[in-house]
Amino acid sequence: MSVEAEPVPLPAPPLRHRRWIPVAALAVVLAAVTSGGYLTADALGEVQGGAVAVNASVRVTPFPGWELAGRSSDPDRIRLTSGSTSLDVAALPFDGTDVDLLRQYVDNILEPDAEQFRVSEEVEPVRLASGLTGSRIAYVGLFGDVQAPIEGEVTAVVSPSGQGVIFDGWAPAGQLQFEIDEIDAMIDRAEIA
């Protein structure tokens, strides 16, 4: 004679997997916030890929995401932008060294237009992919009516033929660090006759 035990209902399966749901949702939100801007910007329109001529002797190839935002003359100058970051490239005949050109640009162009202007103490020598050498400094200051501080990096190059080129990459404070590699790469690949 046997006594059949009444079947005990099994406990509900562990809901451990449910712990993943809010975590996964949070991860998706963080991924969307960090990458969403780039994806949206791409969707809004891509930039042309070819080289941009500053004048007959100087050409710069914008990285993807950079676009030609302006052009002026006397001296010949273009502005490339990527979001809030800009790279101004100016080309002019110059009889002097790249350090002289750099100093003149800082003294005559940047400093008169700036408040609380500061320049890095050391001038960094640079060498472009073409073999040309130049000089580079970093700066920070308040410019014009723009309330946010601007930080920038100026590179001056003078070719043996006397073609002086100024590359001024700038952005609102805090933003330049995210674009500086692309700016340096565009400068490195610039074609200067």
């Binding site: 990458s35 932008t81 979001g83």
Partner: peptide, 28 residues
């Protein structure tokens, strides 16, 4: 770090929509 990366990305959107001058003043 995440904010630095994301701010830059959304800054591109602001610049696309408003232009560089607007972006310089309003991106932040």
């Amino acid at each position: 770090v995440l904010a630095g990366i994301a701010n830059e990305g959304w800054g591109l959107v602001v610049a696309h929509l408003g232009g560089p001058v607007f972006a310089a003043e309003w991106t932040a």
